[in-house]
Amino acid sequence: MHSTAKSVAVYGASGHTGQFVVQEARRRGLSVVAIGRSATRLNAVFPLAVTRRVAALDDPVSLEQAFADCALVINCAGPFLDTAAPLARAALQAGCHYIDVTAEQASAQATFADFDAPARAASRVVIPGAGFYGGLADLLASALAPDGDIDEITVAIALDRWWPTAGTRRTGERNNVPRVVVKHGKLVPLIPPAEVPDWVFSPVLGHQPMVEMPFSEIITLAHHLKVGSIRSLLNRSALDDIRDGTTPPPTAVDDSGRSAQRFELEVRLVQGSVIKTARVRGQDIYAVTAPIVIQAGLRLLSPSYRHSGALALAEAIDPVELLGALHGQSLEVFGDVLR
């Protein structure tokens, strides 16, 4: 039986990103169930006002019980190569929609391939890669996308610093699957070119040397847009940060728990002689994931929502409308992508 409740289950709730998601869901007036693998950790992080449940990834019964009376499961627990499949399966079994925030390409690919038919059968939606990586570029490119095939999409990301969480480091150690890009309309292994163009961002980040570093946006974009070439660039200094084992984790600088990190993400789309660009900028890539997934979740929970299947974020939710909801609240959106 499908749940008709409006509660949102957040798995990995006591982790860095999970705490932001719980906080944002409560701020939006949603009933939240904080779920994790450690009762001690959950009790230490969340007040008594937050419902807390413990469930193990290798225990489908405990997962389904944890998701009881919920309508949506948001998975914030990486590595998603390990967590996405059991959580998506249990979410559908419990009658819930499922969203995760993976930056891992292989995880997003597997979710699209393995859960489209089960999600359609359950009349529910499964959305991988709906966070900063994966989701934002998909929203921008889809809002820009013209009718017909697209020649090229380039995603350029700059962070003034990348203070990685413990979860990010664990995921990096686990995620040793070769990265892919799109060439000639097909996903192919990344072969780094000899040179990658520098990119000029807004004055805060300015001129940045870049490296080709594709995340889950390659998979989300290729899932539903017909594009000849898709590549994703990251500024070299951010990559140096995350490769340096001594780089500290993020430190809160405001009451919401955000770090001082500034980011900018630009999408450039080419169709023939027409070039379109759009970009977003804001503070803290982990924190900004929360309003993205909660705004998406609010739309999935609408009684009028009718889509089903394994869908990219911009397939499941109107990208222009969602960007409009985020603009001025959680990030700044620039370019001809807002109504």
Rank of each mutant, 00 (worst) to 15 (best):
A77K: 04
I99S: 03
V54T: 07
E64P: 11
A90V: 06
N75E: 11
F46N: 02
P60V: 13
D100F: 05
R52L: 10
V45D: 04
A68G: 06
A49Q: 11
R89K: 06
V45L: 10
F67Y: 10
C70Y: 00
A77H: 02
A34K: 05
L63F: 08
A39E: 14
A71I: 12
R89M: 02
P79I: 10
I99L: 15
D82M: 11
N75A: 11
R28H: 07
R89Y: 00
A56N: 13
T40Q: 15
F67G: 01
R53C: 09
L81P: 05
T40D: 13
G36T: 11
L87N: 06
A49L: 12
L42G: 09
A77P: 03
R41P: 05
C96G: 08
A94E: 01
N43H: 06
C76W: 00
L72D: 00
A34T: 13
I99C: 08
S62C: 12
I35S: 04
P86Y: 03
D59C: 06
S31M: 14
F80G: 02
I99Q: 03
V32N: 02
A85N: 10
D100S: 06
R53I: 09
A66P: 01
R41E: 12
V73K: 01
G78I: 03
G36D: 04
G78Y: 00
R53N: 05
A103H: 10
G29W: 07
A90C: 10
V32Y: 01
V73R: 02
S31Q: 15
S62T: 15
P79G: 07
N75K: 13
L57M: 15
E64Y: 11
V73F: 03
V33C: 15
I35V: 15
V32K: 07
A49R: 14
S31A: 15
R37L: 12
G36V: 11
D69Y: 06
I99A: 03
A77L: 09
V50T: 15
L48Q: 14
A77R: 00
T51Q: 06
A71Q: 13
G29P: 08
A34I: 13
S38R: 13
L92G: 03
V33S: 13
V50L: 09
V32H: 03
A103W: 06
G95K: 06
V61T: 15
P47W: 10
G36H: 12
Q93H: 15
A49C: 07
G78D: 02
N75R: 12
A103S: 14
L81Y: 12
F46R: 04
V50Q: 04
L30V: 09
L48S: 13
L92D: 02
L81Q: 14
L57D: 08
G95Y: 00
L63D: 00
P60Q: 07
P79T: 07
A56T: 04
P47R: 11
V54Q: 01
L48P: 13
A39V: 11
L92H: 05
D82P: 00
H97Y: 11
F67L: 09
R28L: 14
E104K: 14
V33G: 09
I99F: 09
